[in-house]
Structure formats: structure tokens, C-alpha cells
Computed example of a mutant assay.
Amino acid sequence: MPIPQIDSTHDAALSVALDAAINNKTKPLGSLGMLEPLAKQIGLIQQTLAPQLLAPAILVCAGDHGIVAENISAYPQSVTWQMVENFLRQGAAINVFARQNGCALHIVDAGVNHDFGPREGLIDLKVAHGTRNFAWEPAMTMEQCLGAMQHGMALAGSLEGNVLGFGEMGIGNTTAAAAIMHKLTGIAVGDCVGAGTGLAADGIRHKQQVIEAAVARHTAANTALEVLSTFGGFEIAMLVGAMLGAAQRRMVLLIDGFIVSSALLVAARLQPAILDYCVFSHCSDEHGHRRMLQHLAVRPLLQLDLRLGEGTGCALALPLLQAAVNFLCEMATFASAQVSGKIA
């Protein structure tokens, strides 16, 4: 499967023009803080001085993980399919926040260990009924991994709009994400592992030991795709493909928390220019996320101590993207408002 080619958003002339447009608004230089580079980034992505956010959507991919057999989660695996049902009934936090902000929500069965049958509102792209237990064998075959990525690329290519947020659901997926983070960043496992759905200190230590043993078992997994197929989940692989497909279409990529950021680590290894398209919605309260963001040298918009997943951070950050676009397109300049500029 060919990896989509992603162009850098760097455009020297447009960059200068965007800086001038932002700096000439009726405000002191830099006084809108992080909204200013955000407006510039969106302008560069869309290649215009007048960007727009069209039909924003969030993609929530769900999948189960064989690693739950190692007792690494505070919740049973059945919670994955039960929460998918909750999404379909419009009862989860992501439903509330997406609805509040006029954002479309797409729920995907990437590999849940449950048969839903045909369901309105559920996109069935199930690769298998959950991954295998990576404590003992690779989580998926390379064929399954690439298939999940291909599904994600195709899905991103089918959506309308130019803003796509990414969310996930899958009991055990913080363990998969921590293993991916460790392998791709070299950060110690202990600095990647957190409480997930609410483990106590003993549970976190056990989770760390499980990952360390698995990493020692799978020493041959080193490339981004090998790491993804060995330690990842179907929902994570599908998110990797969707991110690559969305960036190829020059969409704004709105990144959620720890698990979604682990998918981005893989995507960025495959196509480093994808980072030009990414807006990081928040810094999760999950232990490793801050280190992950530091590794990527990026700054999140929000710090709300979230650790729910589902794409909730994306939905909450969406109004900030709209504010950035709106001030760039609608705010008066010193000249148009006949306001005196800064004294030289």
C-alpha cells in the first residue's frame, strides 16, 4: 500500500502576507496570543488570506485489544462495545460536545469484539474482533494493519469539509499507545505509562511491567509500521490512515489526547510534513501525553486535565479554531477603522 505523499504547507510569500494581515488588525502585536499563529497555520494549510472552516467533523474509531488479557485495565473489554452503543444513542460526552459546536460525528467499528449488525450511524469497517495479545504475539498481521490504514484513508477521502478531528474508544488502548510511544520516541516506559481508565499505583506498575516484557519479546519491531502492527490497535491504525488521507487533502487535523497522538507519532514517522496540518487540541491528564507533545515540539490549545478520549478535546477546541479564522477574516485593520497604529 503506497503511503500518501503530503506537501509541506511552507509558502514564504503567503507566510509574509499572513503575518502582515494579522499584525495590521486593530490590536497590539501578538495580543491575541495563540490565536495568531493558529490563524496563520490555517491560512497556510488552505493557501489563502481568508480561510474558512467548512463542515467540521470528528471521526471516532473503536477497537478492542488482546492485551486486556494481561489485566491492564480497570474496566472489562465489554465496555468498548457498550460505549459504542452509547455513542449511537447520542449519550456520550463526545455527542454532547459535538452537538454543542455544530460538528458532525462519525462512529467507526474498526475492530470491536462484538457483532453490532447493521446499525444506523455506525460505519462498519471491522478488520477483526479485536487484536491479539501483544504480550505474546504481534497484535495484528502487517496485512491487517495496512488494511485498517487503507480504510482510514478512504474514509477521510469521502468526507466533506476541511476540518477533521480524531477520537477513539477501546479498552486497553492506553497500553498500546504507551508501547508505541516508547518504541518511537525512546522515552522510558515508566514515563509513557499512566492510569488509563483509572488504575491505582499497583495497576500502573503492572501495566509498565507488561509493556516492558512485550518490548523485550518483540525486539525486531522497529520501523513505524512494524511498531504499529506489533503493539497497536485496529482503531489506532485506522486513525493513522485517516490522518494521512486528510492531510493529503489539505484538511486541518484536530488532534485529541494520548491515544490519538500515538497514532500521529506513527503518521509523522511515515510523512513528517503531516505536522504542518495538525492542531493539538489539549494536553491530556494521561501521564505520557505531555512528554509526547514535548517530543513533537508542539503546544496544545487547552489544558483542562481531560483524559476521556473520544475526541472530546477536539470538540472543545473547535470554537478556538473558529475564533482564529474569524478574527483574521472579519476584524478591522488600523487603516479601515481609522485607528492610529503604534508610535514608531
Rank of each mutant, 00 (worst) to 15 (best):
N222K: 14
T223A: 07
A224H: 09
E226A: 09
V227S: 04
V227T: 10
L228E: 05
S229K: 14
S229H: 13
S229R: 15
F231T: 08
F231E: 06
G233K: 06
E235P: 02
I236K: 05
A237G: 11
G241D: 06
A242I: 05
M243N: 04
M243V: 08
M243C: 08
L244W: 11
L244Y: 12
G245E: 06
Q248W: 03
R250N: 15
M251D: 09
M251P: 04
V252P: 01
V252Y: 03
L254K: 05
L254G: 05
D256F: 00
F258Y: 15
A263Y: 02
A263S: 13
L264Q: 01
L264V: 02
V266A: 11
A268H: 15
A268W: 14
R269K: 15
Q271S: 13
Q271I: 05
A273C: 07
L275H: 11
D276S: 06
V279T: 04
V279H: 08
F280Y: 14
F280K: 08
H282A: 11
S284N: 07
D285Y: 13
H287E: 12
G288Q: 10
G288I: 04
R290W: 09
R291V: 01
M292H: 09
M292N: 12
L293R: 06
L293D: 02
L296N: 07
V298K: 08
P300E: 09
P300H: 02
L301D: 07
L301H: 06
L301Q: 06
Q303T: 14
Q303A: 14
L304R: 12
L304W: 12
R307T: 07
L308E: 01
L308Q: 03
G309C: 01
E310W: 00
E310S: 00
E310R: 00
G313D: 02
C314G: 07
A315F: 00
A315I: 00
L316S: 03
P319W: 00
L321I: 00
Q322P: 08
A323S: 12
C329F: 09
M331C: 10
A332C: 05
T333S: 15
F334R: 05
F334S: 09
